[in-house]
Simulated scan of single mutants.
Amino acid sequence: MNDESGGSTEPRYQVTADWSEDAVTVYQAYRPEIGRPAARDGRFPAAWKRDRMTWVKPSFLWMMYRCGWATKEGQETVPAVRIRREGFEWALRNACLSHYARGPHEDRASWSRQLRRAPARVQWDPERDLRMRPLPHRSLQLGLAGEAAARYADEWILGIEDVTPRAHRIKALLTAGDVDAARALLPPEREYPLDREACAHLLIRGGPGGAPR
């Protein structure tokens, strides 16, 4: 395929996730007072602030890069949240890029207007391998606010699992040099069938410099 990849056979923008016909798993990282009750009860506790933007990541390894294998302060617990695909795709259709880029927007003013109205935001960052090295393609971060955050918390969640022990185990195996055993514990992720026509407003054409940081 030769689309927004800039001539490569691999798309620059990919959504890699553990998904099924009806659901997709996304990851977040919280302090234990939020993450543990969420996994226990299958819903976010009252301490979870639904009036703030919440960012979800479909890529387990990108989440591990972000939270330092669940060791960073305030990110010591990693819930894997299984949500309805219809909700995930609604968020993408209604999202706006978190940074201005030529192509998806006529100008900076039109992007700013859309950003204020959109209930979701998208940012693309380099995907990571098991050693946290950047890969050529970019991985999705999806920010949910307002209506999107409410739908996420109240309608889309099918289940929540605390994968913090898995994160610690993988990190310990990597430290011990057992890369194969560490890789065997990764979630069964594959490329998500992103509707590139419906998500054209989120895909930046041109050189790497046009991508959000």
Rank of each mutant, 00 (worst) to 15 (best):
Met1Phe: 14
Glu10His: 09
Thr16Glu: 12
Asp22Arg: 14
Val24Asn: 08
Val26Phe: 04
Tyr30Ser: 00
Arg36Phe: 05
Arg36Pro: 00
Pro37Asp: 09
Ala38Phe: 10
Ala39Asn: 03
Arg40Pro: 01
Lys49Phe: 13
Thr54Asp: 06
Thr54Lys: 05
Thr54Val: 12
Val56Phe: 02
Lys57Glu: 04
Lys57Gln: 07
Ser59Glu: 11
Met63His: 01
Arg66His: 09
Cys67Met: 00
Gln75Met: 14
Glu76Gln: 15
Glu76Trp: 06
Thr77Ile: 10
Pro79Tyr: 05
Arg82Trp: 07
Ile83Ser: 00
Arg84Glu: 15
Phe88Thr: 08
Ala91Thr: 07
Leu92Tyr: 11
Asn94Ile: 07
Ala95Gln: 08
Ala95Lys: 04
Ala95Thr: 09
Leu97Pro: 03
Ser98Lys: 05
Ser98Leu: 08
His99Ser: 15
Arg102Glu: 15
His105Pro: 00
Glu106Gln: 12
Glu106Trp: 07
Ser110His: 09
Leu115Thr: 13
Ala120Thr: 11
Val122Asn: 06
Gln123Tyr: 12
Trp124Met: 02
Asp125Arg: 13
Asp129Phe: 06
Asp129Arg: 02
Leu130Trp: 05
Met132Phe: 00
Met132Gln: 13
Pro134Asp: 10
Leu135Pro: 07
His137Glu: 03
His137Asp: 07
Gly146Ile: 06
Glu147Ser: 11
Arg151Asn: 10
Asp154Pro: 01
Leu158Gly: 12
Thr164Tyr: 08
Arg166Phe: 01
Ala167Phe: 02
Arg169Pro: 04
Ala176Lys: 14
Asp178Pro: 04
Ala181Met: 03
Ala182His: 07
Ala182Lys: 03
Leu186Tyr: 03
Pro188Gly: 05
Arg190Ala: 13
Glu191Asn: 12
His201Asn: 01
Gly206Val: 05
